[in-house]
Design a protein around this nucleic acid. Structure first.
Lengths: 352, 352
DNA sequence: CAAACGCATTGGACCGTTCCAAAAGTCCGC
DNA sequence: GCGGACTTTTGGAACGGTCCAATGCGTTTG
């Protein structure tokens, strides 16, 4: 590579190029940014030298002068979770497409680490931050972390009371759609499994569940909410609690796919079959949902798209758009598979 | 935050602090790096101003001067894959612990994108790169991407013929251990499912499989290798091919857990039970392995640790260690669950 | 033929830090 | 009350770019 060209081990700079091409560094700078001011033959000469020297542009130095940055902080609450992983992939793609580069941090649901990481990102000069807040982040905490000069979008977990733009799926509409589907299949007692009322996501999904039940004129029974950790084991516990209920539900809507997978597994262990003995639907449509036994009926949150949308919103913010306009609650899509017990004819109809 | 202190919207700099504290910017710089040269009371005064102004250190500017970088490129071939996701988490943790910050790129197994991303990272001034190469990356391609001045470690997929340090699990020993376990359970015809001979990882795992068979004095039959894509569907195809074999194996070692999950699923669809009608073992011990039906017996690659080790090796390289010394092939651990059909007594023994 | 213009190029200040040689201050003993 | 040693502080160049006002230089134009 060009590092050897200069003689010393020092990497090639714009000045080296200028000297070798017999022009000033200003001209090289102009060529680098494809300015039309420079004469084509000069441009060709400079580009030739750049190529020969294997020159590498130093974006950091440039950014120092222009006080801009092509870095964006991507703060994820739990990368181990396939759902957030998918989100991260979407964000990453969206950023690269727009010439930005993500700095990754996984907070692991730890608010202390989240605070550290946010500070570190500021020091590293990110131009903005996309964050799925760690569980337990409230508006107050967020305010103390946030700097008015740092564009930031919040994703997947709404922080009530915060003015920051929020990008996420329409949890309520999604849950409603799913429960309406269950009602359409003839279910009258439909439970809700997993999550805790402290999570805004759960609140939203529960409210969609309630809307569907009330909207269909069915009796509403809030003892059919079985809270648990949003994990596989939580799903197991919740489904077992629901089976022990004196008037057990014939169908359950789960907080997310992980819970639904735990639930279907626990049913299978007891010799019950999801979709036959109890209808189960999930939320998120993670990759594994399709490969579950039985394949999960679930609500797609279009996670990838949502990630791309985060990137879009943040870059809007960076370019000075009104934060009010940059929020986005995305569409959801019911994906009918087997765990809800829909007959094949319905599954095909929904696909069409 | 302090941005308002300066009057203008411009962020606070070391010079603002110096002026306000009545010292020179050199002194502030000294304080910032905790130098013992500065008198405690001066230090206190400066720190007070820093606090009041909410000053944020500009690492980019500092790095420009010192020609160092606290960024590290983390190039992952397929973040969607839970295995690589786990790896990424390990790397991220390791880097943060050592004061470095990862720039993420997901190449999605695309060598072209890989080339772009590597260039972009150089421009962004990363101090080094950790990369799990995209499928199809050979030593020649790598050489053209690599710059002698850029520390780089390769992980999870060995590139034969490349002098770059490689960090990854001992695939051969791991596979051997797993197959020896199957032999210990009484199996005599043991197949290998998934992957292609072009993948070095498959070569290594296959060679462990062969070693175990030959080592036990069993007849070796290479028609028992059933290649396929390393996906769930690949697993299904491979296991079906194995069932169609005139002398079908009674046990199979799979290329990885994903393949094993596809295989167990396909068996279940045919009314066969993994662990009973056919023993199945996987490789990697991804999170889902434990939750598979039946839970997978697999070889743990200690993925997190391996990620941390990547970080360690890279930082060694950055500090000038000999690349030869920075390679690492990590330990593996057999995790006995149910898919191999081991009786409970053995499962408990292995746990102890 | 000088003024005016357009195009191509350039010098040097600037971004926010670090680093180093040198200056300033403090304390001591003689 | 001055030289020397030590501690603390400082000015300014440097890092690798960008930006802008200024310059040089052909051409056209009044």
């Amino acid at each position: 590579m060009g590092e050897t060209r200069t003689g010393s081990g020092r990497p090639t700079t714009i000045v080296d190029i200028a000297r070798a091409a017999g022009v000033s560094k200003s001209t090289v700078s102009l060529v680098l940014k494809g300015s039309s001011l420079v004469k084509p033959e000069t441009k060709a000469r400079v580009e030739d030298v750049i190529e020969r020297f294997g020159y590498v542009y130093n974006r950091g130095a440039a950014n120092l002068r222009t006080a801009t940055s092509s870095f964006v902080g991507m703060v994820i609450s739990d990368l181990t979770n396939p759902f957030f992983c998918e989100l991260a992939v979407g964000i990453e793609e969206g950023l690269y497409q727009r010439g930005f580069v993500p700095i990754l941090a996984n907070t692991n649901e730890d608010t202390e680490r989240q605070a550290q990481v946010l500070r570190s990102m500021r020091e590293h000069g990110v131009g903005g931050i996309i964050m799925s807040p760690a569980r337990g982040t409230d508006a107050w905490m967020l305010a103390s972390l946030y700097s008015r000069t740092m564009p930031m979008v919040i994703t997947m977990r709404q922080i009530i009371g915060s003015p920051l733009p929020y990008v996420g799926p329409d949890n309520q509409a999604g849950a409603r759609k799913a429960v309406e589907h269950l009602i359409g299949l003839g279910h009258r007692r439909i439970g809700f499994l997993g999550g805790y009322a402290t999570m805004t996501t759960q609140q939203e999904r529960i409210s969609g569940w309630r809307d569907a039940i009330l909207g269909a004129g069915l009796p509403f029974d809030d003892t059919l909410v079985f809270e648990s950790m949003p994990t596989r084991d939580g799903g197991r516990q919740a489904v077992e609690a629901s089976l022990a209920h004196p008037a057990r539900p014939t169908a359950v809507m789960c907080y997310n796919d992980i819970v639904a997978m735990g639930a279907t597994r626990a049913l299978a262990m007891r010799g019950l079959r999801a979709g036959k003995d109890m209808a189960v639907v999930g939320f998120d449509d993670i990759d594994e949902a399709e490969h579950n036994a039985p394949p999960l009926t679930t609500v797609s949150a279009e996670t990838r798209l949502m990630g791309a949308r985060c990137a879009e919103s943040l870059l809007g913010l960076i370019q000075g758009s009104d934060p009010q306009e940059m929020g986005f609650t995305g569409p959801t899509r019911l994906v009918v598979r087997e765990s809800c017990g829909a007959p094949v004819s319905i599954r095909q109809k929904e696909l069409a």
